[in-house]
Each structure stands twice: as C-alpha cells, then as structure tokens.
Write a protein that binds this DNA or RNA. Structure first.
Lengths: 132, 132
DNA sequence: ACACGCAATCTGCAGTTTGCATGTAGCTGC
DNA sequence: GCAGCTACATGCAAACTGCAGATTGCGTGT
C-alpha cells in the first residue's frame, strides 16, 4: 500500500526542509562569508535540525542560481579549493521577506499552544477544547 | 526557458513547505476542529504563504496516517460530505516539539539580521559585514 | 613510497513531495 | 436541465531529499 518504504514523519523529530534550509544558509552568510562544508557544520552546531551535506551543497547552488548568493573559488589556503559564498543584496531582501512570513507563522503556532484560535472561525464548532 | 514550468524560488515570495504546512494545519486544529476546505481558506486569511488545496488535502491525509489528526465524515450539514479533522494527543506533542525547533531557527535568522553571527565561526573570515 | 584518512565538493539513484490541472459528487439558483 | 459553487480526490511532470559513492588535495604513519 504505498506507505512502507518512505519515511513519513512518524517520530517527533523535525527536519529542515526547503526554504528553511535555504534561509538558514542565507542567515549564516549574513554573518560572514563561508563555504559549504563550514556551513554544513555550523548547522550542526546551531542546534538546528540538520540536512545532508549533499543537500546543503545543492541548496547553495540553487541559491546562487536565484541570485541570492555569489561564489568564487578560494585557493588561497592549503587543501582542496573551497567555493566561497557570500550574500547578495537580493539575498538579504529575500531573507527579510521570509522572516516576516515566519513571524506570522510563529504567531499561529504559539497562538495555538496558548489555547485560543488565531483567526475567527466561520462557525463555532462543537468540542471547545480544554486547554491543558 | 527553464522557468515557465518549474518554479524555482526566484522571486521573493515564500512558500509553505512540508513541515511548515503540516504544523500550521495542526495549529489550526488545536483551535477548533475543521475540514480541509475550511483549513485551506484559513491559511489564506492568516497571512501565511499558501499552498495548493490539493496539497492541503494530502497533507491532512498524511497527518492522519501519522496519527497526528483523526477524521470522520460529517454529513450532518447540507452539501457534500465533509471530512472533519481533529487534533490527537500525538499531534499536540508533535506540535510542541516542532515549536521548540522553530524557536531555535528563528533565533538564527533574527540573530543574523541583527548583524552578528550566532555561532562563533571556526576562523575569522574576511569581509567584516556592515550592519545596515 | 604507499596506503590511509580527512577536508571539501559533487553526482546518481530511488523514493517522496509539490503545484497544476482535472475529475467526481452534492447542492443551489435560474 | 444547466451552470456554478462547495468539498474532496487524483494523475502527472517537475522538483526536492537522503544516502551512498566518486573525486581531488593534503597530511600522517610505518
């Protein structure tokens, strides 16, 4: 039945998807330029749910494609060349826009936890829930 | 050409993906039981970035699959039957866990906007960023 | 010198998720 | 009866994800 193979968030373990990963990356890059490997590790240290390193690299590439970051090969140091990323003006703009949406999102969530419904429902439903 | 069919976040228009959609739904259901169509509209009215209604219905199904919501057919009213959803205990738990992760996430983002880097980077980078 | 491991990036694959368009079913208005 | 709205569901192609593996460059142990 199409449900055994995939991992469907059955555990209470959040993951960092799509825009959330992208914007976290953008946020780190606002602080300081960095390369993929470093960003991948900063994610781990930040207490944020982690993504695969391959996913991080690909996200960075897409961000560059969208014009939100720019990159250049850094060979100034020893070891394999690093692709240094830095935030662009468009990236900062997007980050700001996203944060606004995020604030609304968090309002909804914390509002729900507080026990009242944020938007007025069309009809009063049955089962007024008891707040824990 | 490669941008008419596929949408690759090139505009500064956030979308609600994966867990974010799921948890928003959960949050609404904490306030009051509801059915898919209603939830889809609440999303629009909440100022949150929207998802396709088909996506909403599917998200609801997955949530039910995971045991975070339960549903029954409501035929008490006129019109086509509605699938009424309500939050389960597991759903509330998941919501709480998610909110904690979200707080960390938001710390990172807003910290970045403030102009300082949240975690201390391994090496001092070049380009001390100018705060806007 | 050579194997080994680490740092750093990239890619193939299979499975999942998404947006869009469309399809079904029931009720309302004309 | 036909159009239109509510409410839910599904097919499809494109996109995204995690995992595993490949690649390059450097340092270390023996």
């Amino acid at each position: 039945m199409a449900e055994s193979t995939g991992r469907k968030r059955t555990t209470a373990e959040p993951r960092l998807h799509g825009e959330m990963l992208a914007t976290s990356l953008l946020a780190f890059l606002k602080g300081c330029n960095a390369y993929g490997y470093q960003l991948s590790q900063q994610l781990s240290e930040s207490g944020l749910p982690q993504s695969d390193s391959g996913t991080v690299y690909r996200a960075l590439r897409q961000l560059e494609n969208s014009g939100f970051v720019s990159s250049f090969w850094d060979t100034s140091d020893q070891g394999p060349a690093r692709r240094m990323y830095s935030l662009t003006a468009a990236g900062e703009l997007f980050l700001g826009t996203w944060i606004e949406a995020l604030n609304r999102y968090q309002e909804v969530l914390t509002g729900a936890l507080a026990g009242f419904d944020v938007p007025a429902p069309t009809e009063g439903d049955s089962t007024e829930e008891e707040v824990t």
